[in-house]
């Protein structure tokens, strides 16, 4: 019974969250759910509100309206318990380029209360996962952009989070590096049971087996499995569905007085 209840707890639950920059609504009543062992794509154009939503989930901003829970812990009321379960890869580079890969990861470990000895073991583990074990002592500045991204993913995994947020994680990467990173994160979902929320504006990063949340101008237009979203607007594929959903929303906005 207790086990069943634990399984039912979503990795991430965003419940009627709104956020305003002055009078402009960046998010308007957004609700979504990410389950453990699921890969959910947050699909939206630039300016859709993806980064704002991530800032609210990570408590960089506080949400004045609605609730955000990570494995049942309210981010506003129990930030420590909520953030311990969370690993994040930011859209902009957030590594210290002047120091080594190992030093960056040790710093992150300390920020999660992980002592040096244990951190060294975890660093070996995550670097092996992203296939960059040989870069341990290299300065971050000497790495390629793709390698930096993989180090950021390694860092996000260091404290063994159960929910992983990636905000435009493939931005600036070539096609091969993008595919590698995407495949690696999907593998984590399968092998480690991590719940993933993958924010992107690139339709081709959506896989048939994914969950999708279509975010447009701060509002969720559709969510569910790829098949369900495609079927809901009688589209040919997810790209077509996205175009129809956002096109209809824009048309509605223009019709309003």
């Amino acid at each position: 019974m207790a086990e069943a209840a634990a399984i039912a707890v979503p990795a991430l639950e965003v419940d009627q969250v709104s956020y305003f920059y002055g009078a402009r609504a960046a998010l308007d009543g957004v609700s979504l759910r990410v389950d453990p062992s699921s890969f959910t794509v947050l699909l939206g154009l630039n300016g859709a509100g993806k980064s704002t939503l991530f800032s609210l989930i990570t408590r960089l901003y506080a949400s004045p309206v609605g609730h955000i829970r990570i494995f049942g812990h309210d981010v506003g009321r129990e930030p420590g318990a909520a953030l311990r379960n969370l690993g994040i890869v930011f859209q902009s580079k957030a590594l210290d380029a002047d120091i080594s890969v190992r030093q960056n990861l040790l710093y992150h470990a300390a920020l999660h209360g992980i002592g040096r000895r244990r951190a060294e073991v975890e660093i070996d583990r995550v670097l092996a996962q992203v296939k960059l074990g040989d870069k341990r002592g290299d300065r971050v500045a000497s790495l390629s952009i793709g390698q930096m991204r993989r180090i950021e993913i390694a860092r996000a995994l260091l404290h063994r989070p159960r929910l992983l947020l990636l905000d435009e994680a493939t931005a600036g990467l070539d096609i091969r590096a993008r595919a590698d990173i995407l495949a690696h994160v999907r593998q984590l979902v399968a092998s480690e049971g991590v719940g993933v929320l993958w924010a992107t504006h690139l339709i081709d990063e959506v896989d048939a087996g994914d969950q999708v949340v279509v975010l447009h101008k701060g509002r969720v237009l559709a969510q569910g499995s790829v098949q369900a979203v495609v079927a809901s607007v009688q589209a040919a594929d997810i790209g077509d569905a996205f175009a129809r959903l956002t096109g209809a929303a824009d048309a509605n906005t223009e019709q309003r007085p």
Binding site: H73, I99, G113
Partner: peptide, 26 residues
């Protein structure tokens, strides 16, 4: 999550000090 054993995700004094020393070290 590492050390998630403690209900509510609270940290002990040792972990606070690890965090502090990590920030000083950086």
């Amino acid at each position: 999550a590492i050390d998630q054993g403690q209900a509510g995700g609270g940290f002990g004094l040792a972990q606070y000090l690890i965090c502090f020393s990590g920030i000083v070290w950086r």
